[in-house]
Simulated scan of single mutants.
Amino acid sequence: MWYSFLNIFFFVFHTIFTLFNIVGWIFQKTRKLHLITISLTAFSWFFLGIWYGWGYCFCTDWHWTVRQRLGYKDHSNSYIHFLILKLSGINLNEQMVENATLVIFLLCFILSACLNIKDWRIKKNKSQNHLS
């Protein structure tokens, strides 16, 4: 029962987290949070990845453990590939999905960093103008 709940939790949480990493930079009110979530993803992929393998994601690792305990043997090397397959039934080339995931991630990270810097500069300029 507990593992079934965790399986559903990870599907929902990880999917929302992933979607937020893709679109969270768009909205000014969510940009700071987005920079945090996308940085956590980068930390997991590139820093923890030194020890666990490039692209390592602790959410994916935990979800695979839950699914393994439930008796599933259907996970792939890419969580995004897994989601696409489970949600649409389409079995895309895994390497293509990993490459697209990396490109989209890097674009979103760069956009988030640039827009957060821009927002910070605007806020800084406004506060300096109020002091003058």
Rank of each mutant, 00 (worst) to 15 (best):
E94W: 03
M1L: 05
L40D: 08
Q28T: 12
M96N: 12
N7W: 02
H34Y: 05
S78G: 07
H81S: 09
G89V: 01
F13M: 12
E98N: 14
K123Y: 08
C108F: 00
L131A: 14
V66D: 00
I122R: 09
S78L: 01
H63L: 01
R67V: 07
S127K: 14
G53S: 10
N125A: 15
K124Q: 15
S44T: 04
L70V: 05
W51N: 03
L115S: 03
V12W: 02
M1P: 08
T37N: 11
G55Q: 09
I16P: 08
D61W: 02
L92G: 01
S39T: 13
I90V: 15
L106D: 05
G71C: 02
H14F: 00
W2R: 07
R67H: 10
N7L: 03
D61P: 00
I80L: 11
I110W: 10
L92Y: 01
R121E: 14
K73T: 13
F20Q: 01
L85Y: 11
S76T: 15
L111R: 12
Q95H: 13
S132D: 12
G71E: 03
A100H: 03
V97S: 01
H75K: 13
F11M: 07
L102F: 08
F9L: 08
R69Q: 14
N129L: 11
F43Q: 04
K73I: 05
F17C: 03
F20N: 02
L131H: 15
V66Q: 01
Y52L: 03
R69Y: 11
S132Q: 12
A113T: 08
R67A: 10
Y3V: 04
S132M: 10
H34F: 07
F17T: 09
I90F: 10
V12L: 11
H14W: 01
W62K: 10
I8A: 05
K124A: 13
F9M: 04
